[in-house]
Computed example of a mutant assay.
Amino acid sequence: MNSILVETGLAGAVGTGIVFAGAGLAKLRHRELFPGVVANYRLLPPALEAPVALLLPFVEVVLGVGLIASGLTGGKLAWLGWPAAALFLGFAAAMAINIRRGRAHIDCGCGRSQLRQPLSWGLVVRNGVLAALAVCHAVAGAPATAPDAAGLAVALVAGLALYLFTLLFNALAALAASPLASGRR
């Protein structure tokens, strides 16, 4: 397997794992608000909104921890890239549907309640990129020879950098959409 794909997959597993784990934990901290976020998307029958809002944060945390473990063990759980990509693409689709409906004003529910973040095409693209990184991990799988300590350290550092870049993107997008950015009050 191409070493670039393997290294990208390992870094992507760590980075997307941290994104999922962080988002899931933030949703759990604000679990009283999250059912309203799910309902705001207007994509599920009302009977499914509460169960999805209850289960999704746990799914994100478990998937995130699994991806981090996979990235740091040389891809032993690389198959987790497939459900991770499906979840990212599902989120992207939900956002795109609402933007097309003219409902870009709703909060994305990405787990960062301190900065309300309305839907945007940038978030759709961000989720597509994260899905692609998860697919890289799934496709690369575990290499024939386990990465050495330096390779795993690079995966960890690159994964952390990906996560920090995602946080920066989210914060800048949320601030750009805030009333303070345009001088509105």
Rank of each mutant, 00 (worst) to 15 (best):
V157H: 08
L44M: 12
M1I: 14
A86K: 01
A149Y: 10
V6M: 07
L87K: 04
T166L: 01
V52D: 07
G111H: 08
G9L: 00
N40Y: 01
A171W: 06
L133E: 04
G183F: 04
R126A: 13
G151N: 02
L133M: 09
G9A: 04
L63K: 02
R112N: 15
A171V: 04
L56N: 06
F88V: 05
A140P: 12
A150P: 07
F34M: 05
P179D: 14
L55E: 13
A174P: 05
I106W: 00
A144Q: 14
L25Q: 11
P57C: 15
G64C: 05
A85S: 09
N98R: 07
L72G: 03
V19D: 03
V14Q: 06
A92M: 07
I106E: 00
A26E: 06
H137K: 09
I99M: 12
N40R: 10
G22D: 03
A176T: 08
A174L: 09
H137N: 10
R31H: 15
A140E: 04
V125Q: 11
A161H: 08
A155K: 01
G111T: 11
V52T: 14
A149N: 14
C110L: 10
L72P: 02
T73V: 06
A153G: 07
A50R: 08
N2R: 03
G12S: 06
